[in-house]
Design a protein around this nucleic acid. Structure first.
Length: 110
DNA sequence: ACCGTGACTGGCA
DNA sequence: ATGCCAGCCACGG
């Protein structure tokens, strides 16, 4: 309901991720659910995998798994880039996990 | 055109 | 509480 299904699944994912406010984070499941397929969380993750070759660049560092863990940090140029960027936006990260994740969680549909 | 894989999630043992 | 299994859709080889 977020975006009309005019574009590809990937593109929809990118748009949702791009509207994540700075200093906020969201989850693959939330994005997938917003797109209408709560079970397609994997596709969201897969879309992020390709996000590095998409323009404009997608703030993938704001997307974490259901536990608030930076599961995709290994896909960044450097393993610490994701955490560094999150901290730069005011998001505290402890041991690869977002602190106060529930508070910083941002609903893509909202 | 077919098969395998993947930055996930939820349920069951 | 922890670990394993199956499901979902799209892309790459």
């Amino acid at each position: 309901m977020a975006q009309p299904p005019n574009k590809d699944f990937f593109q929809r994912v990118y748009e949702v991720v791009r509207r994540i406010p700075k200093g906020r984070v969201t989850t693959y499941g939330a994005i997938a659910a917003c797109l209408g397929s709560p079970k397609s969380a994997r596709l969201v993750g897969y879309a992020m995998n390709a996000s590095h070759r998409v323009m404009p660049p997608v703030p993938a560092h704001r997307v974490v798994n259901r536990q608030g863990l930076l599961t995709g940090r290994h896909h960044f140029p450097t393993p610490t880039a994701m955490q560094e960027m999150l901290e730069a936006e005011g998001v505290k990260v402890l041991n690869n996990q977002v602190k106060d994740f529930e508070k910083l969680f941002w609903d893509p549909c909202k």
